[in-house]
């Protein structure tokens, strides 16, 4: 059972190593990297490639660790008690299992994604230490202990908004997805758009990496944005020669809105291009 990437996902050697280590030893794998480099997608791809059930838990700034395990719906119970519902006598009826619980109860070894763990409160990872370590937790209301049938492969993503506590980091494998270099990027594009002509890809990548290296960009376009842009280019049937022209003439590339997401960046780009044009003429 080894993960080697898939038809839809290009994984570099170091990434597959980290995934396989985490899957073999059943320890959580923490993934960091620039936005849009496929952190979240990884878990889904691992699940598909290894044929495992997939559970996801998306973290928000208001998420509590408890919500991943279970929630006690006291309000429904109160309401039911007023309506004289029979269910009210069993508290277990009001315990709602969270994603972690569901993953623990899976018949086959599952993949559990904990997405953007850094969005939550600074104490959040600490509240999950025991659960990740022992793969079990206690339900206070019903006095039962839930233990994982199979230790899940846990993939955790972080955008580096907050520092994670050391105790938490010690229990994880760690991988940093660096931004793909040109060759890897070509492979990624190939995987997503197998029919795309080489000329168009070359010009598009030229433009894309040019944009990324533009000094002072607020939001640098990422892999996922490049793919969206290519999709648009294909839908609009833009020819490679148009892109080449844009590269040479220093004009805004067609459909640039897919790459530059922020007004200031667009303005900055126009200004830079204008300067480049003037320099050439002068």
């Amino acid at each position: 059972m080894r993960f080697e990437g898939s038809e839809r996902y290009v994984a570099t050697g170091d990434l597959t190593m980290a995934v396989n280590a985490a899957a073999t030893l059943k320890r959580p794998l923490l993934i960091k990297g620039e936005p849009g480099t496929g952190k979240t997608l990884l878990a889904e791809e691992v699940a598909t490639a290894l044929g495992m059930p997939y559970y996801e838990w998306h973290i928000k700034s208001t998420s509590k660790a408890q919500q991943g395990l279970y929630e006690y719906d006291a309000v429904s119970r109160l309401r039911d008690s007023q309506l004289g519902d029979e269910r009210v006598h069993d508290i277990a009826n009001y315990i709602v299992p969270g994603p972690v619980w569901r993953a623990f109860e899976s018949e086959r070894p599952p993949v559990l994604l904990i997405d953007e763990i850094d969005k939550a409160d600074i104490e959040f990872p600490n509240d999950l230490l025991r659960e990740l370590d022992r793969m079990e937790f206690h339900v206070y209301e019903t006095q039962q202990t839930v233990t994982a049938r199979h230790r899940p492969v846990i993939i955790i993503t972080s955008n580096n908004e907050k520092e994670l506590p050391d105790a938490f980091l010690r229990r994880c494998f760690f991988h940093y997805i660096s931004f793909p270099d040109r060759e890897t990027m070509e492979r990624i594009v190939q995987v997503h758009f197998p029919g795309l002509k080489g000329g168009l890809v070359r010009e598009a990548l030229e433009l894309f990496f040019g944009l990324r290296e533009m000094p002072g960009v607020k939001k640098r376009p990422s892999t996922s944005e490049l793919l969206d842009w290519l999709k648009l280019l294909m839908a609009e049937d833009v020819d490679a020669s148009v892109l080449r022209e844009s590269n040479q003439e220093k004009t805004l590339p067609p459909l640039y809105g897919a790459l530059l997401k922020n007004e200031q960046d667009t303005q900055l780009f126009e200004r830079l291009m204008f300067m480049a044009r003037r320099r050439r003429q002068g």
């Binding site: 050697g13 170091d14 190593m17 980290a18 794998l29 994670l164 760690f174 991988h175």
Partner: peptide, 20 residues
């Protein structure tokens, strides 16, 4: 987990030991 090349060992060791 690793087939045994130095490069694999490097990646594995990094994933295990360095968290930043």
């Amino acid at each position: 987990v690793t087939p045994g090349s130095v490069e694999d060992f490097y990646f594995l060791a990094r994933a295990c030991l360095v968290k930043d």
